[in-house]
Simulated scan of single mutants.
Amino acid sequence: MTYRKLLAAALLAATPLAALHAAPPAYITAAVADTTRPADDVALDAERKPAEMLAFAGVKPGMTVVDIVPGGGYFTRLFADVVGPNGKVVDYVPDEMINGSKDPAKALDRLTSLAKIKPNIMPVHDKLLDPAPPAQSDVAWTSQNYHDLHNIPGADLVGFNKQIFINLKPGGVYIVLDHAAAAGSGLRDTNTLHRIDPAVVKQEVTAAGFVFVGESKVLANPADDHTLKVFDPTLRHRTDQFIYKFRKPK
């Protein structure tokens, strides 16, 4: 056994079991328990494990969180509760995704309506590579939509990730949660199965200057063989998902 393995084993042995499975902070459990959350959101909690996700991301009161392509606002509501009145949630959707949707007016209304949830939510839409304000945010987050950014014609995801890098404060984190595609498949399945090879995400994000600092396996599903579309009724809400954490160096 190497010195590094011996040291790791010693540290593990010295760590109380409770510390390895610490409960999420009270401000996270309170957000998940918020009785004003829509019933449809609550029904997804068993599959999406929001308390574990928020704790992994390190979202805290007073932070600014950028929710990239927030969809219906499942995580937006949780972020807004956690960061509280002294924090802010920026819901961002690229103009290319809004204008390329079947009903752009409806897509824009869906985004702007999220501001009605809480006063600390700010919807933003602009071009994918528009310059980002520097050092404004603590956490950037995208859930089940990184692959869709690749479906924008001509999208430069390394360039987009560089804009996120600019916007984050030194030490800020970038979380990418998405449906896993087969290893080695690259971008083949982003528009067909709505999946992405995790290795592509890691390469693109680190190429923008981020450091990969860890992953969570809490949404992994070994029974998913990565061959079905994520909307397939036999698999929906139970896909094999990866959650990567990247950090902007201080």
Score class of each variant (00 low, 15 high):
Ala8Trp: 10
Thr190Cys: 04
Ala39Gly: 12
Arg247Trp: 08
Ala140Ile: 09
Ala132Met: 00
Lys250Gly: 13
Ala26Trp: 08
Leu128Ile: 07
Ile175Gly: 02
Met1Trp: 14
Thr2Gln: 12
Val69Trp: 09
Asp197Thr: 00
Leu168Val: 11
Glu52Met: 10
His194Asp: 13
Thr190His: 00
Glu47Leu: 09
Val139Glu: 07
Arg110Pro: 06
Arg238Ala: 14
Asp81Leu: 04
Ala51Cys: 11
Tyr27Pro: 08
Asp45Gln: 09
Pro104Tyr: 02
Leu44Arg: 15
Leu54Thr: 00
Val213Asn: 10
Leu114Ile: 04
Ile121Arg: 00
Tyr3Met: 14
Ala155Glu: 10
Ser113Ile: 01
Ala115Cys: 14
Ala14Ile: 05
Asp103Glu: 06
Asp156Phe: 03
Asn151Pro: 06
Leu149Asn: 05
Pro222Val: 06
Leu219Gly: 01
Val32Ala: 07
Ala155Gly: 13
Tyr244Trp: 15
Pro222Leu: 09
Thr76Ala: 06
Lys202Phe: 02
Ala107Glu: 08
Asp138Leu: 13
Thr239Ser: 15
Asp126Thr: 13
Gly62Asn: 09
Ala105Ile: 09
Gln241Glu: 15
Val201Gly: 01
Pro198Ile: 12
Lys118His: 07
Ala115Met: 11
Pro24Tyr: 05
Leu228Asp: 08
Phe212Ser: 06
Lys162Ala: 14
Val124Lys: 07
Leu44Asp: 05
Val230Gly: 00
Val218Trp: 05
Gly87Trp: 11
Asp156Trp: 04
Gln136Ile: 12
Gly71Arg: 01
Leu108Glu: 11
Lys202Pro: 00
Gly100Glu: 09
Asn191Glu: 11
Lys102Met: 08
Glu96Gln: 10
His179Ser: 08
Thr206Pro: 03
Val218Lys: 12
Asp178Gly: 13
Gln163Ala: 10
Asn145Leu: 10
Leu177Ser: 11
Ile175Cys: 07
Thr227His: 07
Ala140Asp: 12
Ser137Lys: 11
Thr29Gly: 03
Leu17Pro: 08
Lys49Leu: 09
Lys5Asn: 14
Val42His: 03
Phe165Arg: 00
Gly214Ser: 01
Asp109Trp: 04
Arg4Gln: 15
Asp45Trp: 02
Ala135Arg: 05
Arg77Gly: 04
Ile68Arg: 06
Arg4Asp: 15
Lys118Phe: 02
Arg48Lys: 12
Ala181Cys: 04
Lys248Thr: 02
Pro70Asn: 11
Arg77Gln: 12
Leu235Pro: 10
Ala51Lys: 06
Gly73Pro: 01
His21Ser: 15
Trp141Arg: 01
Ala223His: 11
His237Tyr: 11
Lys5Cys: 13
Pro153Val: 10
Asp45Glu: 10
Pro104Cys: 03
Pro70Tyr: 03
Ala57Gly: 09
Thr206Ile: 08
Val32Tyr: 02
Asp126Gln: 13
Leu219Thr: 04
Val173Met: 05
Asn167Leu: 07
Pro134His: 01
Gly72Ser: 00
Glu215Tyr: 12
Ile68Trp: 08
Gly184Gln: 01
Gly72Asn: 03
Ala207Asp: 10
Arg4Leu: 15
Val42Asn: 03
Ala181Glu: 01
Leu129Thr: 05
Gly58Trp: 05
Thr15Glu: 06
Tyr174Ala: 06
Leu78Cys: 02
Leu177Ile: 12
Leu54Met: 04
Pro249His: 10
Ala57Thr: 06
Asp240Gln: 03
Asn167His: 12
Leu177Pro: 00
